[in-house]
Design a protein around this nucleic acid. Structure first.
Length: 353
DNA sequence: ATGTAC
């Protein structure tokens, strides 16, 4: 097991315990813990775990969850006005006319963002850290992008549940069947991120562009003849990855170059510092709803769910700069640009309906 | 993170 975090980067001991438990599983080859590591339900979040045996619970229920970045051009981006124009992403799009293979019964959730840490964010390039790489991506300071973090919604949950009901935390009995369902959820998640970007761009009066980044962070793939499970860890094998900050702090687009010791993976975000329960309890004592809806960087958070607003408060997460410093120090990635939120959509704003 | 159960 390798932990890619400096000694001064705090990591919850429960999460390290979970990594050791995973490392002791039958067939496990190597566990690489990322600097955003935190405890998950059964398995750690922020880890890449290679094994001779495929364990569906190590990927979790949100198979295919990932983060995509879409360039967007808006003439006069006034945050408050744009916040009011975001579409309702809790309501699905009409699947008729979408020319793609959609698993039966799951067309009805297409175009929806879900809950938890998922979001759709209009963000502005705040700083360029690698001029040449940013230019290759067509990004310059003050450019706008849509950042979409979402997964396979009910589809992935159903795939994991079908396995767990029979085999619990045991290995996949029919690897081919699991992988084919998994791959379908990965495609569905990526399609869903594109649909949401198109919905938001349309509502803001802009054209939807192709994504410049789209990396999944909950998946299992065959790498070097082993099953490489990633849970809250993105493919870092020569990919560009958006490492998400919080709804009120920067995010970083990085060029990843992680090797075998890191299981070819990089961190996917800031990583929770507090459980949802703690964030809710402590957040209510520390913050008002107003200050969470209007953040320190001047951005707006669209979120009609008060509890979710507290659970997702920036103070519930680790400092993104520390996570990025660790990725750089361990030579897993190089920053390309950082972004600041302008408007983050979490869930429909009931107050305005 | 999710649908579902409490």
């Amino acid at each position: 097991m390798s932990v890619f975090a400096s000694p001064s980067s705090w990591i919850e001991s429960d999460a390290l315990d979970q990594c050791h438990q995973v490392a002791a599983l039958d067939g496990m080859i190597h566990v690489a813990a990322m600097p955003d590591l935190h405890p998950g339900k059964g398995a750690p979040i922020g880890a890449a775990m290679s094994s001779r045996v495929l364990y569906p619970f190590l990927v979790g229920s949100d198979i295919g969850c990932g983060i995509a970045v879409f360039p967007i051009r808006i003439k006069r981006p006034v945050a408050e006005r744009l916040a009011a124009r975001f579409p309702d992403l809790d309501r699905p799009v009409d699947p008729a006319g979408i020319d793609t293979d959609i698993p039966a019964g799951y067309a009805e959730q297409l175009g929806t963002v879900g809950r938890g840490n998922h979001f759709v964010e209009l963000a502005r390039v705040h700083a360029v850290h690698d001029d040449a790489h940013a230019a290759r991506l067509g990004l310059d300071r003050n450019d706008l992008v849509l950042i979409v973090h979402s997964g396979s919604r009910g589809l992935g949950e159903r795939i994991l549940r079908a396995h767990t009901e029979v085999h619990g935390a045991g290995p996949a009995a029919d690897v081919g069947a699991y992988l084919s369902a998994h791959d379908e959820a990965v495609r569905w998640g990526s399609l869903n991120r594109r649909l949401m970007a198109a919905r938001v761009a349309d509502a803001l009066g802009a054209a939807a562009e192709d994504p410049i980044v789209d990396e999944c962070h909950n998946s299992v793939t065959v790498v070097d003849g082993a099953y490489l499970h990633r849970k809250g860890a993105a493919n870092g094998d020569g990919r560009d990855v958006l490492v998400a900050g919080t709804r009120g702090t920067p995010s970083f687009l990085v060029a990843a170059h992680a090797g075998a010791d890191a299981n070819y993976s990089v961190a996917h975000g800031a990583g929770r510092k507090m459980s949802r329960a703690d964030a809710l309890r402590r957040g209510k004592a520390k913050h008002t709803v107003e200050e969470l809806r209007r953040t320190p960087v001047g951005s707006y958070v669209v979120c009609g769910d008060r509890q979710l607003l507290f659970e997702e408060a920036p103070t519930a997460y680790k400092k993104i700069e520390r996570v990025i410093d660790d990725l750089v120090e361990f030579k897993l990635a190089t920053p390309v640009v950082s972004t600041h939120p302008v408007v983050t959509y979490k869930t429909a704003d009931k107050a305005r309906r």
